[in-house]
């Protein structure tokens, strides 16, 4: 069943001709999100239905490669093409403001992360998926014994940069972060669980060290900043943790997505949800920069 990568509506009847018709209708109505998707993923030039259908078929075609490769390709195209996403560029050698923008918006992201992963656990009947999510949640949010969670390291990074934990936690998310949270909540609670798994955990590719070998134009940040005194020790601890954890997390999750998407026949749902999640994440990363700018004044 083909599904719209913007509003996640199922095409009726199933097929790329129906999806093309839907996208065309939404574009004719000047819906910003649908127009944006077409501009960024297909063409800036309006296409007729036959050509749009053909382009969509090509875009979603796995071309015999594993689903995880298709996901990585899409992720790299959005965030790590040349030039990389503006937030990634800013994080190469981050200013205090960039890191604080990261802290203030990301604590909201991580709180939604817990809800999204909890939805996946509640909706799957596969023990390996539950165990994977439990491990992920401990790393990201709960912490294990002496090892602080990513969430705690994030707050410590903010404190090391002169903003109290109370202030961080009391700051409401920017609209794009809010929209992301709502979008991910919807995906996790209503889409087939392998699609939710793909939509959430593909985002951990952002800090995946091996992405450069697969065509990314840069790392998430210049690894050199983990040495020396360019950033605080707490910032190093936070970035190092993500750098090490997300690599394993994303790889394991994509293997699970691939397996269960095929087994349950929901590959198109996964593709649509991943693409929607990528759009939400793109805007959310811009919100980190926007928040960061408030610390420059």
């Amino acid at each position: 069943m083909t599904k719209c990568p913007v509003c996640l509506r199922e095409s009726e009847p199933s097929g790329f001709a129906s999806l093309a018709k839907h996208l065309e209708a939404q574009a004719d109505g000047s819906d910003s999100d649908h127009v944006r998707w077409l501009n960024q993923n297909v063409s800036r030039t309006k296409l007729g239905a036959p050509e749009l259908t053909e382009r969509l078929e090509r875009f979603f075609d796995l071309k015999g490669a594993p689903l995880s490769e298709w996901i990585k390709r899409r992720f790299i195209a959005r965030f790590y093409a040349e030039p990389a996403h503006p937030f990634v560029r800013a994080l190469q050698h981050p200013s205090r403001a960039t890191l604080l923008g990261y802290v203030v918006e990301h604590q909201h992201f991580l709180r939604q992360w817990v809800r999204s992963c909890a939805y996946i656990m509640a909706r799957t009947d596969r023990p390996d998926v539950v165990l994977y999510e439990l491990d992920n949640l401990n790393t990201e949010y709960g912490g294990t014994g002496a090892t602080p969670a990513h969430y705690e390291l994030l707050l410590r990074m903010g404190e090391s940069l002169g903003v109290s934990r109370e202030e961080i936690l009391a700051t409401a998310p920017l609209p794009a972060t809010r929209a992301g949270i709502d979008g991910w909540n919807r995906i996790a609670s209503t889409e087939p669980w392998p699609a939710a798994l793909g939509a959430m955990h593909c985002l951990e590719l952002i800090a995946h060290r091996d992405l450069v070998r697969e065509g990314a134009s840069s790392h998430y940040f210049d690894p050199g900043i983990l040495q020396g005194t360019e950033i605080s020790d707490a910032a190093k601890a936070f970035l190092r943790e993500g750098y090490e954890a997300d690599m394993g997390h994303a790889g394991q999750a994509l293997a699970l997505v691939e397996r269960y998407a095929a087994e349950l026949g929901v590959v198109p749902d996964v593709q649509a949800a991943v693409l929607r999640s990528i759009d939400l994440f793109d805007d959310y990363l811009i919100a980190r920069l926007e928040r960061g700018a408030t610390f420059e004044r």
């Binding site: 004719d28 077409l38 800036r44």
Partner: peptide, 22 residues
């Protein structure tokens, strides 16, 4: 953005102009 999708027309700087979206 130069996109030709969409159908928003609005007066800007005294001229009716085309935009792909609001």
């Amino acid at each position: 953005c130069d996109s030709t999708w969409g159908n928003v027309w609005a007066e800007v700087e005294g001229e009716r102009r085309f935009f792909c979206c609001e």
